[in-house]
Nucleic acid binder design. Structure first.
Length: 554
RNA sequence: GCCCCUGUAGCUCAAUGGCUAGAGCGUCUGACUUCGGAUCAGAAGGUUGGGGGUUCGAAUCCCUCCAGGGGUGCCA
């Protein structure tokens, strides 16, 4: 990767430096104040603007508009690369109008940096971050809601990795305790032809597993037991986990670590953690259970860590697990992605982590709001849910990833399956992929017609002046900032929006500006070929982060 | 009751406190003898849930009320 010293200043940096220089020239001291330079909402207002005159007018004892006018005059006098003119508008905005050359320079930079470097940013500084997501219990296949958050977690991981973090993707496997026993009980009920008791798992997959379990238990040296719920539950859990891995793999998701809760418990980590908390006088016994005195940590009530039957609660295990993340494996930062149904546990976990001596700002927890299907409840126990695999069979992996990454996870979602299926051809993912297919098609035609592509250094990009061309470059030029914002805010969906915007601008360009053809001068063909290549790079980066494929034909 | 999320065009969603609140879908009207029509151009569509407040400026921040979803287990 290039060092920052080698990367030329961005256009907005150039503008900010100019503003600061001119403020100084006018004898105004804002050196300790931030100066915001932003893109305008509409081109009639120029390419960039700053609000610094309005923000600082009071401190400097001036009228905002007067200050803006003085500053604008000075900026025009001193000027800076690519500046056309400066205007003052409204209550004191300073709007910068640039020559198209700034876009030609941006385009050249995209090509020079290429697919591996463009739109990267070293924000993370190599910080070691662990991202835990999905972590669905191995008591049934992944459902659509699980898959939804998988997409989020995976793309967030790719994004942070892309922006300079050292990422470990982890799945916490809840392979012990009550749920596994319940699963085993449900399995054995099926084996014996009994109805599954209340609270058990009733899905069709349990019946299928029961059939297999019966077969395997009959073989000569089988250790499977038709009377032990725990043995049956663990066996079924492993089978289900293998199925879950398969579903994840379809979505292109590979975890670095599969972390077993059973290992935590059996390795004594839970006992150690409770011991540590009890040294701090944060643990007590009542009614045969072990409680965390979380009220003293600011929680609304105390919580059970170990039940009276000896089972560790989910919270108890999770505290031990997080102690492992922070204090055994020493991650700098931990990001947990849970469903909103885990909300009740967040405060307690935070309290406990702090009690263990971990700076709570190192723990980020994101709760994805509920994803549901119209007319369907998503309950594994009742077996009344649409599995992720079923939906993927229906609409395809790309459509699913794109759809699930199209809006904030703070937004709850109700999927109308009929709608999703029937409109699958209008799905925006095809719109974006179609842009890529058209790009590939241009390349095929170029080769068929034996048109050589000149080296970028020798190509004059200044002939790109059509509004469609300039709009397309703008959308590509915005990508680094969009990606950096996504990484900082942990909001991948903005990349999805930007990929649509780029595809949109490309389709308009494609329609109005032929790249190859009798009526296109050779120099223009060369410049446009590079513009198309830059667009391909931008789409490859965006869809790569989203985990969506780039078809050459559709 | 308390905690969290959400309320923006008919629908799904955008908009680091900025200038005239934007896209897609749907609706209506148009467009290729060049590289892929899964495309493109245009039109219509809004009291940003209500009411206060802060600010030069509020969909955005604060208070309050209303509506929807989730949580509030010795389930996970």
């Amino acid at each position: 990767m290039e060092t920052s010293a080698q990367i030329p200043l961005s256009q907005s940096d150039l503008i900010e430096k100019s503003i600061r220089r001119c403020l100084e020239a006018l004898g105004l001291d804002l050196s300790d104040q931030p100066i915001h330079v932003e893109r305008t909402a509409r081109l009639e207002l120029g390419d960039f603007f700053t609000n610094c005159a309005m923000v600082n007018a009071k401190n400097l004892g001036q009228q905002p508009r007067q200050l803006a006018l003085r500053l604008a005059q000075q900026i025009e006098k001193e000027s800076f690369p690519n500046l056309a003119r400066v205007e003052v508008a409204g209550p004191g905005f300073i709007n910068f109008f640039l020559e198209p050359s700034w876009l030609h320079q941006s385009l050249r930079r995209v090509i020079e940096q290429g697919e591996g470097t463009y739109a990267r940013a070293d924000i993370g500084g190599g910080e070691r971050v662990q991202i835990e997501f999905v972590s669905a219990n191995p008591t049934g296949p992944l459902h659509v809601g699980n898959g939804w958050l998988c997409s989020f977690g995976d793309t967030l991981s790719r994004l942070l990795d892309w922006c300079g973090w050292n990422v470990t993707k982890e799945y916490y496997v809840n392979d012990t305790g009550n749920q596994i026993r319940t699963l085993g009980m449900s399995l054995l009920a099926h084996c014996e032809g009994r109805a599954v008791p209340e609270g058990g798992y009733k899905g069709q997959y349990v019946a299928e597993l029961a059939k297999k379990y019966l077969d395997e238990s009959k073989s000569a040296n089988s250790s499977l037991d038709l009377s032990d719920e725990l043995v049956a539950g663990k066996w079924a859990g492993e089978k289900i986990l293998a199925n879950i891995r398969g579903s994840l793999s379809r979505l292109g998701i590979e975890f670095d670590v599969w972390f077993s809760q059973a290992e935590i418990e059996e390795g004594g980590a839970t006992a150690q953690t409770i011991e540590y908390l009890s040294v701090k006088d944060l643990v007590y016994e009542k009614d045969g259970a072990i409680w965390l005195n979380s009220i003293s940590l600011g929680d609304t009530r105390d919580r059970v860590l170990v039940k009276s039957n000896g089972d560790v609660t989910y919270l108890g295990g999770d505290i031990a697990y997080h102690r492992n993340k922070f204090l055994v494996r020493n991650f700098d930062r931990v990001i947990d992605i849970f469903g909103a149904d885990h909300h009740g546990q967040v405060a307690s976990l935070r309290c406990a982590i702090q009690a263990l001596g971990v700076d709570p700002s190192r723990l980020e927890i994101y709760l994805g709001q509920m994803v549901s299907l119209a007319d369907k409840k998503m309950s594994k126990r009742d077996g009344n849910f649409v599995s992720l695999d079923e939906l993927l069979d229906d609409i395809g992996e790309d459509a699913f990833r794109f759809l699930s990454l199209a809006k904030s996870i703070n937004e709850s979602t109700t999927l109308d399956l009929d709608l999703v299926r029937s409109k699958s051809m209008d799905n925006p993912v095809y719109y974006v992929q179609y842009a890529h297919a058209r790009i590939a098609s241009i390349e095929r035609v170029r080769q068929e017609r034996g048109i050589d592509r000149s080296e970028i250094e020798t190509v004059d990009l200044s002939c790109l002046v059509h509004p469609r061309e300039l709009d397309l470059i703008r959308s590509i030029e915005e990508l680094p900032e969009v990606i950096a914002d996504c990484a900082r805010l942990r909001e991948p969906f903005k990349i999805t929006n930007q990929s649509r915007k780029i595809a949109d601008r490309f389709h308009s360009f494609y329609h109005d500006c032929h790249v190859i053809g009798e009526s296109v001068p050779p120099e223009l063909t060369q410049a446009r070929l590079w513009l198309v290549e830059a667009c391909r790079i931008a789409l490859a980066i965006s869809l790569g982060l989203l985990g969506v494929s780039l078809p050459d034909s559709m």
